Each structure stands twice: as C-alpha cells, then as structure tokens.
Computed example of a mutant assay.
Amino acid sequence: MNMSEIILLALIQGFTEFLPISSSGHLILPSALWGWQNQGLAFDVAVHLGSLAAVLIYFRQDIIKMTVAWFSSLRGNHSDDSKLAWWVIVATIPAVVFGVLVKPYIEFYARSALVIAVTTIAFGLLLGYADRTAKQHNNIYQLNLKSVLFIGFMQAVALIPGTSRSGITMTAALMAGLDRESAARFSFLLSIPTILGAGLLLSMDLVESTSPIDWSAMLYGAVLSFVSAYVCIKLFLDWIARIGMMPFVIYRLILGVILLGFVYL
C-alpha cells in the first residue's frame, strides 16, 4: 500500500469502529471507487491493535475499577462495578458462540456489496426507531440479565457485514431502556473483548501466513487508528446526549443508497 491508502484505511478503521455507521460499509468504498486491493492480514492486525489501545486507554479507570471489583466478587464481595464487569462477560458470550458456529458461512455467503448496502440501511432505520421510541431512563448500572442477554444476542447479529457492532449494541441498549450516553459507554466497554478476540484470530492467521509484512505500514496504521479511534470515542460521548442518533441514521441511509448505486449502476 502507498501512504495515501495507509492513511485513509487506518482513519476509516479508527473512526468507524466505534461510530454506529458500519465499518465494513466504509471499507468497501475504496475498492469500489478506486479499485484498491485488500489491505492484508498484517494491516488488519495493526489497525485492530490501534483501536483496542484507544478504548483501553480512554476507559482505563473504569477498566481498573471493574477488574478489581470482578476479582473481589469471586470472594463474595459484590458491587456495581463487579456487576458491570460480569455483564460485559455475559454479553460477549453469544457473539463468541455464534462466531464459531456461523462465521464461516457468513464469510462465504454474506460478504457482498449488496448485503452490506441492505444491512446498512435496515439497521440504520432500526437505530432511528430505537432512538425515537425507547424510554432511555436507565443508567449503565441499572442493566439486568435479560437486557444484557438481549444486547449480547444483538451483538452476534453484527457478524453480518454492514450491521455495525457498535450500532447494533447501542440500538439494543436503547431498546433495553438505557439513556444514550450509557448505551454508548456499554457498547464501547463491550467492544474490548470483541476487538481483542478479533485481533487474536487475525494474529494467528498472520503467524500462519507466508506473505511478507510491511512493518512501516503496520506502524502507521496502528498509530493513525489509535488517534482517530480515541478522538472518535471522546467526541461521541461528549455529543451524543445532545445530538442523538439521528445524524448517524441519516448518514447510514445515504451510505446504503451509495452502495446500492455501486451494485446496480
């Protein structure tokens, strides 16, 4: 990859990983517009590491409190932070199970521009419906097992390209009654094991690969992905209570229509 490809793809990964707008929908655009080739396993690993570092550093205080509280809960000392840590674990399980069972079929049958376009539009409309109709009166510590399982199973749907992991988990969290900021925070916390797992799988594939590695591209990709993801998380949490989800819904609808144009024109 040349430098312009590295910069654009890393920024796309960093920004779209956490915004509810579908990273796969954006990553298909460079190949559709300019015929760019797949960026390769090494670059995928790098940008995932950058995104993971961003969310870990931004939520470092929450993560430390949750980790300490979780270990304390194993000795019978329960708290809001230990419960939140358990909820992140529980909500991750459906995605892991469904990922093992159906991901190979999704990779074969569903990774197309048409599927991404349709899911970008459909789940964008669902996000708009949740934002407009949900009660949004609970904070992140008022989650219960039923709500967490619902969010977890909805996250598993994000295996379908174009769904947006952050988008579908925020949608589910809003439908479960969380306010916008709490929905976003839980989605970001839930991204940590998900991105970590995806990065580990990609790293295993990279170890088995015989393709040469462009270390400079990996470095630039990781740094740019980290910076853009960190800025994205901060701005999103600062603004979401005021602007709501509708700007992202409208953006998804426009993106979906553009992708449909690439398919049929």
Score class of each variant (00 low, 15 high):
Lys103Gly: 00
Pro104Ala: 07
Tyr105Asp: 00
Ile106Pro: 01
Phe108Ala: 04
Tyr109Gln: 03
Tyr109Ala: 01
Tyr109Asn: 00
Ala110Leu: 07
Ser112Trp: 00
Leu114Ala: 05
Val115Glu: 06
Ile116Arg: 03
Ile116Cys: 04
Ala117Ile: 03
Val118Pro: 01
Thr120Asn: 01
Thr120Phe: 06
Ile121Ala: 04
Gly124Trp: 03
Leu126His: 01
Leu127Gly: 01
Gly128Ser: 02
Tyr129Gln: 07
Ala130Val: 08
Asp131Leu: 03
Arg132His: 05
Lys135Met: 13
Gln136Pro: 06
Asn138Thr: 04
Asn138Arg: 14
Ile140Trp: 03
Ile140Glu: 08
Tyr141His: 10
Gln142Gly: 09
Leu143Ala: 12
Leu143Ser: 11
Leu143Asp: 09
Leu143Phe: 07
Asn144Asp: 15
Leu145Phe: 14
Lys146Glu: 14
Ser147Pro: 11
Val148Met: 07
Gly152Pro: 11
Gly152Phe: 12
Met154Pro: 04
Gln155Val: 14
Gln155Ile: 14
Val157Tyr: 07
Leu159Phe: 06
Ile160Met: 13
Ile160Gln: 04
Pro161Gly: 02
Gly162Ala: 01
Gly162Cys: 04
Ser164Val: 05
Ser164Thr: 07
Arg165Asn: 00
Ile168Gln: 03
Thr169Glu: 09
Thr169Met: 10
Thr169His: 10
Met170His: 08
Met170Ser: 08
Thr171Ala: 14
Thr171Leu: 09
Met175Gln: 00
Ala176His: 04
Leu178Cys: 08
Asp179Thr: 08
Arg180Pro: 05
Glu181Ser: 09
Ala183Gly: 05
Arg185Gln: 13
Phe186Trp: 01
Ser187Gly: 02
Phe188Leu: 11
Leu189Tyr: 01
Leu190Ser: 03
Ile192Phe: 04
Ile195Arg: 00
Ile195Asp: 01
Leu196Glu: 02
Gly197Gln: 06
Gly197Cys: 07
Gly199Lys: 01
Gly199Arg: 02
Gly199Leu: 06
Leu200His: 00
Leu202Ile: 03
Met204Lys: 12
Met204Gly: 10
Asp205Phe: 06
Leu206Glu: 02
Leu206Thr: 08
Leu206Gly: 07
Glu208Phe: 04
Ser209Val: 05
Ser209Cys: 13
Ser211Phe: 11
Pro212Glu: 03
Asp214Val: 15
Asp214Arg: 15
Trp215Asn: 11
Ala217Pro: 05
Met218Leu: 10
Met218Glu: 12
Met218Cys: 15
Leu219Trp: 13
Leu219Tyr: 15
Tyr220Trp: 15
Tyr220Gly: 14
Tyr220Ala: 13
Tyr220Glu: 07
Leu224Thr: 08
Leu224Tyr: 11
Leu224Asp: 10
Ser225Gly: 05
Val227Phe: 15
Ser228Gly: 15
Ala229Thr: 13
Tyr230Met: 14
Val231Pro: 07
Cys232Tyr: 07
Cys232Ala: 15
Lys234His: 14
Leu235Asn: 13
Leu237His: 12
Trp239Asn: 11
Trp239Glu: 14
Ala241Pro: 02
Ala241Ser: 14
Ala241Asn: 12
Arg242Met: 08
Gly244Asn: 14
Met245Ile: 06
Met245Pro: 13
Met246Asn: 12
Met246Ser: 09
Met246Ile: 09
